[in-house]
Each structure stands twice: as C-alpha cells, then as structure tokens.
C-alpha cells in the first residue's frame, strides 16, 4: 500500500478533482445557520462565524428560507449571503411578519388596516481575528445590520420614532473540543448596540426610550457529531415603547447538517410579549443551502 502511495505522490501533475463545486473547505457545521436577520449564527442571535464554508482562499454563500409560527404571529424570512475568504460576510434578508390576530386589534382600536409588517435587513460582518476551531481565544467578528422597515404606519402609530436603523455588534465564538461527554461544545457571545423595537419590525426608538442601548446575546450548542448540533440561545431586547412591553427572546434548537450544502434547523422559540399579545411561543424551521 505504502509503495502505491509513493508512486502516486511522485506523479507530476495533480489530479484535478471536482472540488470547484464544493461550497468551501471549512469543517462541517462551522458555517452555523442563517439567523432571522440574515447574518450567520443560530436562529435569533448572530455568531462570530461567517456564513457558508469559504476558507481563506475561497468564496461562498448561502440561500435560506425560515419561518417562525408563534401563537399570534408568523414570521417568514428569505435571506442570502456571500462570504469572501472567510473574512467578509454580506447578507440580505427580507422579513414578513403576518399579524394574524393583531389585524383585528389594529382595525378596532386604531382604524388601521394592515395585515403584515415587512422589513429588509442588509448585513456586513467582518472577521477581526481568530478561528472558531483553532485559536485559543476563538473567533471574533464585528457586524453592522442596516434595517429598513417597509410598513411604518403601525410602528408610527404606537410610538416608534424612525422607520430605519442600524445595529452594531461584536461577537465571539469558540468550539471547545472534547468537552461534555467528549463532544465538541460551541459557545458564542454577542454584544449589540441597537434602537430596534422587536428587531426593527416595530420601528426604531420610541416614546419610552429613544437612544442606543447595549444588549447581551448568547448561544451554546453541543455537536453530537459532525452533523447534529443541539443548543440554546438567548437575546436581550430593548423596551422602547410605552404602548406595550417588549421581552427578551430565547430558543432551543436542533440543527442538522447532513452535508456542507444543506442545513435544516428546528427550534422552539419564545418571543415573549409582542405588541400587547402575551407569551408568544412556537416552532421555528429554517432550511439553508450553501454554495
């Protein structure tokens, strides 16, 4: 066997395999999945990981479709991202929040006819230093999310100040090899400066508070093997509107990454009170393809 190998290594030319069609060289599942705001991360919280699987000499990207169905709302997100050299991530996401039962509240209480709220999010994330797997201090990235609310009548009526806003965040992620039960553990923390109400779907700033505030976000997940990641996320939220209290978000997730090309995420999400409707919980599903 060794002799055959020696012979193969002596061959002058490489065997040009069809690697061009691969989505990139980073190790399975280290692309994370797509958040509801289009940046790579978990479901609700951006991580320091850049989308897809491009490593330092490659580019790649993702396309994804996500839906959260909580008690009185459903949120649909279509998103796309590009990753250049595992250095820069560009993303876009279009969110559509179906107001389901809030439609009647708005009509009877405010005389507004509106059955959905839409928002576009344009994201830029830059890996500052480190590698999530290989460096002792993990991987650190900074990001910007420019958000444009497209149906401002409702947010305007309930006290929001602006129909667009910019979130800034700093994120650190690290995989600890062979931790609990010798499984690899992913830990991620994010600090976000934001004025967004319910992520921006209810506008930016408000009558209770109008300035930027720092919010803490965190995630942890265990890689059962290289195809399954289970974990939890937490996202602190501002509370800018007198109209209704806004709560922190959390979720429990399972992500299945059968292949670099594909990931499927299911989560139980708890979004708390949203625009007077209390305790919004439900199922989140997200399908992502990488190229």
């Amino acid at each position: 066997m060794i002799r055959i190998l020696t012979f193969m290594l002596l061959l002058p030319a490489t065997l040009p395999h069809a690697q061009a069609s691969d989505p990139g060289s980073r190790i399975w599942a280290t692309g994370g999945v797509t958040t509801i705001e289009g940046s790579a991360g978990g479901g609700l919280v951006p991580w320091a990981l850049l989308s897809g699987y491009a490593s330092d000499e490659e580019w790649g990207g993702t396309l994804s479709l996500s839906q959260a169905k909580v008690d009185d709302y459903s949120l649909t997100v279509q998103a796309a991202s590009l990753n250049w050299n595992n250095r820069v991530e560009l993303s876009v996401a279009r969110q559509t929040l179906d107001l389901d039962s809030l439609v009647f509240v708005l009509k009877d209480g405010f005389g507004i006819e509106q059955d959905e709220l839409r928002q576009d999010v344009f994201g830029l994330k830059v890996r500052l230093f480190g590698d999530v797997l290989y460096t002792p201090w993990g991987q650190w990235s900074a990001g910007v999310q420019y958000k444009r609310q497209r149906d401002f009548t409702v947010p305007d009526t309930i006290g929001a100040r602006d129909d667009s806003g910019t979130d800034l965040y700093l994120s650190g992620s690290k995989v600890f090899f062979a931790s609990l039960f010798d499984r690899n553990l992913l830990v991620s923390g994010t600090v976000r400066a934001t004025r967004a109400n319910q992520g921006g779907l209810l506008g930016f700033g408000g009558d209770k508070n109008n300035g930027y505030e720092f919010m803490a976000e965190a995630a942890a997940g265990i890689l059962l093997n290289r195809q399954w990641l289970v974990g939890a996320e937490y996202r602190q939220k501002p509370d800018n509107l007198n109209f209704a209290e806004e709560n922190d978000w959390w979720d429990l997730f399972v992500a299945w990454v059968p292949d670099r090309r594909l990931s499927l995420t299911a989560a139980w999400v708890n979004l708390g009170d949203i625009a007077t409707l209390t305790d919004q919980q439900g199922l989140y599903l997200s399908l992502e393809g990488s190229f």
């Binding site: 090899f177 062979a178 039960f181 010798d182 499984r183 690899n184 059962l224 093997n225 290289r226």
Partner: peptide
C-alpha cells in the same frame, strides 16, 4: 466521535 474529538 469522542475519541476523534480527543485527538483533534
């Protein structure tokens, strides 16, 4: 998997 992780 556990032994793979330990080596990595």
């Amino acid at each position: 998997v556990g032994a793979q992780n330990r080596l990595l």
